[in-house]
């Protein structure tokens, strides 16, 4: 009987602490989430200009070594951040995949190391238009004469599609 009473006491204490923690968590969680997204928000807004909100998603990329992060947009799309070595160094970009199975957006973030004219073409509207609207299971029309950089980015986008298909489709 004594053990049962002791166990109940401990259970009550644990329940009380659970309640306190839940309250603290409610206050701090939004702030923490906000800080996580703040760093990437400026970049995400290059694709989504309509005031959508974003959320960082915890994901395990396993063998997809070029993927750095994935964000969920309030309209249901998923945005992948990838980085792959192009000709001169890492190329960082964002690609948005919509629930209808097409690419919704693309933004080149850092092409400072790429050769002018060839690699930096990944940052042009031509490349972007080749990506946006294409269905994710079809191959992307690369620039005439695929360069090291554009091939790198396209390969990385393929990884993003694979991860998306495995996890969120």
């Amino acid at each position: 009987m004594k053990t049962v009473k002791l166990a109940i006491f401990l259970a009550i204490v644990s329940a009380l602490s659970g309640l306190c923690l839940s309250a603290v968590n409610d206050v701090t969680e939004p702030i923490i989430k906000e800080a996580a997204i703040a760093k990437e928000r400026a970049n995400l807004q290059q694709i989504y200009t309509g005031g959508e909100t974003f959320e960082v998603i915890e994901a395990d990329f396993g063998d997809y070594t070029t993927l750095q992060g994935v964000y969920k947009v309030s309209n249901g799309d998923y945005v992948y951040k990838g980085s792959k070595n192009g000709y001169g160094g890492p190329c960082v970009y964002l690609v948005a995949i919509g629930s209808d199975g097409t690419f919704k957006g693309f933004a080149a973030l850092d092409l400072s190391n790429e050769t002018n004219g060839f690699g930096s073409r990944v940052g042009t509207d031509e490349f972007k238009n080749n990506v946006v609207g294409t269905k994710i299971d079809e191959s992307i029309d690369t620039l005439s004469g695929a360069t090291v950089t554009s091939t790198a980015v396209v390969d990385s986008i393929k990884e993003a599609v694979a991860h998306y298909t495995e996890n969120y489709k």
Binding site: S14, G18, L21, S22
Partner: peptide
Amino acid sequence: KITYMDLITFIL
């Protein structure tokens, strides 16, 4: 979704 209980449960 109560990952904030990790510390208490682990130590117990």
